[in-house]
Design a protein around this nucleic acid. Structure first.
Length: 433
RNA sequence: UGGGGCGUAGGUCAACUGGCAGACCGCCUGACUGUUAAUCAGGAAGUUGAUGGUUCGAGUCCAUCCGCCCCAGCCA
């Protein structure tokens, strides 16, 4: 016997053989002298069949100790069985209880409220639905690495502990020896720019932190962001990279995670339309469109959630909103030579109301203009000395963007809230488990 | 941080203008040789989020506090 303990997903290769499955009990049903236990091992489920007349009495007796989530080794003959969940079953000949599970295991195959499920997230992870979500998240993460690797990008890991630098909004801080406060990174971008000057094309993939008191379906205080930065790319090149990138991630899930998308009851028709080119609309045009459709937005305002949904509903695939007013965006974005009130940037809005999944821009590469913008924003110039130096010693046109991993996964999975696509979500009111 | 909503058994929820604390699921006991969220019979299970008030009487009305959900803002 080459593999006496195969994974459940591989059982079709072991039909007729006696093997041992190692896993957890997800369901028990008894019918007098025949009893059924469904076993999960993380790769699939299999039904174990206990027949009283064909078992030693002590094995039969042990069946009634199988509570929900008991961990077991079950030995038996593999049979193809269309009636069984998982389409295979095990004619049990042996049972070893590895870890008993008290009867008060909290999660039932029934409906629960979100607060209860999040309190029990360490158990909730064991459900089918969660497994499907994380298979898709994993596919997307792998696709991200494959996409950039194939294009010769270097992955670099930027610091999580930083001096105050980056975005304006809320920072988590902690004491840092004699250096005063350290802050959890909100972005790796500025470091990515330094790396782009060294390596050409780079991307970062790491956790980022925002101490904003936002309580919406689209915000976490800790989330994962992918930030490419490319030397010699202007804003137009940047958007072409974004649409190729996003389209590739969607395509990979459609190709390789169809079963999981089905498990989540995701309508894949809108995903199949996600192909380059994405629609492009200038901020100024967007404001005019929105005003015609009844929005109260005026030039200079950022787009609200309602405005985004209204705008995206016009199109059948993601939309780039380009060149926002300077005041609405970060200091490092390059002024638009065609309209100096605006900067060369883009937000990529996902369809179906999922909103902004990418924010990107061409960076200001002129030393004096960048210094002027830092002062205008009232930022501490000395903290940005090294960043300014990138413009002083061999400045270069460059662009990049940040893709929010959880927003992207939630969109592709078709889930209403991003808290479901990260294993242990961190939100304003949740630090445990 | 604003606006709205909610808090009752382990879970999901009922309980009319204030009048005996309920159902289903789960759990326990028993029956059943092919169950699919098995079925059938029986049983245990409650400081109604907390404190105070009004009342003959409060899950229900009032005040304060605590917790959560949704929407908005900020953003990815």
């Amino acid at each position: 016997m080459a593999d006496p303990t195969p994974r459940i997903v591989d059982l079709s290769q072991h039909v007729g053989k006696t093997i041992t499955v190692r896993g957890w009990v997800t369901h028990v049903r008894s019918s007098g002298k025949v009893a059924f236990a469904v076993i999960r091992d993380g790769t699939g489920i299999v039904q174990a069949v206990f027949v009283k007349t064909q078992l030693p009495p002590e094995v039969w007796e042990r069946f009634k100790d199988l509570t929900l989530e008991t961990s077991v080794h079950v030995t038996g003959e593999v049979r193809a069985e269309p009636r069984a969940p998982g389409s295979h079953e095990l004619g049990v000949t042996g049972l070893t209880i590895i870890g008993p599970s008290p009867i008060d295991y909290p999660i039932q195959p029934k409906e629960h409220g979100i607060d209860f499920l999040l309190d029990n997230r360490h158990f909730w992870l064991r459900s089918n639905r969660v497994r499907a979500i994380f298979s898709i998240r994993n596919e997307i993460e792998q696709a991200i690495h494959d996409f950039f690797y194939a294009r010769g990008f270097l992955r670099i890991d930027t610091p999580i502990l930083t001096a105050a630098i980056g975005e304006r909004s809320g920072l988590f801080s902690t004491e840092y020896f004699d250096e005063g406060n350290a802050y959890l990174a909100q972005t790796g971008q500025l470091y990515g720019e330094a790396a782009a000057a060294a390596f050409g094309s780079i991307y970062t993939f790491g956790p980022t932190f925002r101490a904003e008191k936002s309580k919406t379906r689209r915000h976490l205080t800790e989330f994962w962001m992918i930030e490419p930065e490319v030397a010699w790319n202007d804003s137009a090149d940047n958007m072409r990279l974004q649409e190729d990138f996003v389209s590739y991630l969607v395509e990979r899930c459609l190709e390789r995670r169809a079963a999981e998308l089905r498990e989540l009851e995701r309508d894949t028709a809108p995903l199949e339309r996600v192909k380059p080119p994405f629609h492009r609309v200038n901020y100024t045009e967007a404001v005019e469109i929105l005003q015609k459709r009844g929005s109260s937005i005026t030039w200079g305002d950022d787009l609200g959630a309602e405005d985004e949904a209204l705008l995206v509903s016009e199109y059948d695939r993601p939309v780039f909103v380009m060149n926002y007013p300077k005041e609405a965006k970060a200091f490092y974005m390059k002024e638009n030579p065609e309209d100096p009130r605006t900067v060369l940037c883009d937000d990529c809005l996902a369809p179906e109301g999922y909103g902004e999944i990418i924010g990107g821009s061409q960076r200001e590469d002129d030393y004096d203009r960048l210094l002027h913008r830092i002062n205008e924003e009232g930022l501490p110039v000395d903290a940005y000395g090294w960043y300014l130096d990138l413009r002083k010693y061999g400045t270069f046109v460059h662009s990049g963007f940040g893709l929010g991993l959880e927003r992207t996964v939630a969109w592709i999975c078709g889930l209403p809230h991003i808290r479901e696509v990260i294993a242990f979500p961190r939100m304003m009111h949740r630090l445990k488990p």
